[in-house]
Amino acid sequence: MTEPLFDIAVAMASFFAGLLGALIGLGGGIIITPLLVLCFGIDIRYAMGAALCSVIATSSGAAAAYLRDGISNMRIGMFLCIATTIGAVCGALLAVVMNPSVLAVIFGVALLVTVLLSLKKKSGALVEPEGSDPLAKSLRLPDEMPVAGMQVPYGVANVIPGFIVMWVAGVLSGLLGIGSGAFKVLAMDQIMRLPFKVTTATSNFMIGVTAAASVGIYLKKGYLDPSLVAPVALGVLAGAFAGARLLTVAPVKLLRIIFLVAVSIIAVQMIARGLGVSIG
């Protein structure tokens, strides 16, 4: 296969990954890397570099919509970005000294955990503004969100535990070249008990900033091959936009089940690849 054909194939796979990511609520990054490694035989380090760039692209592209809606909580996002960016730097420094086979195994495990997290029911239990963590109050984290034309206030719980889990999410982002949105949502939704809409919008803002903290290290280590980043980033970006449009008409529930099964199989194959076993 010549390079133009190869790039078209990569761009199409990336489009699919971005579309899927938008439809089932996983980031494109965590789907595209296994695709590049398993289907295209690309070295995992180049795949991670390209995926990380595509994560930044989609986060920046989608942030606009979220910001305009006024549901993302910028104060929470910025405060937690201290944890995720420092985590991402640690993760990236770890990634560049780690054996690629070990990375593949960790990647597969993280992918499985992501699937489990996205199957988990959203916790409905919110906290009242008055019942917020005192630290949240002094940081002015509680805010309000628009619900059916009214401004409804919400509280914020467990700031320190949330901050720590965010650091871990940052480490995973830098280590694996993913946005680690599922882990960020875990911290904000389950631990800090924020409303789900606020969580997803804020997480999207944070993903790009987090990814930007490790991309410099990837660049210096030669993980960014422009001729691979280009088709991947363009494909994922286009797929994410298409996915956001399709979200209202697609049979999302059915797609979710089908694709979560598919992603689990990919995860197992990634682990097998890392362990040097070949299956399927």
Partner: peptide
């Protein structure tokens, strides 16, 4: 246009 893609082996940039 007629070259083979070369990202299968990591060689840095």
């Amino acid at each position: 246009s007629s070259e083979l893609p070369g990202d299968h082996i990591f060689r840095g940039e």
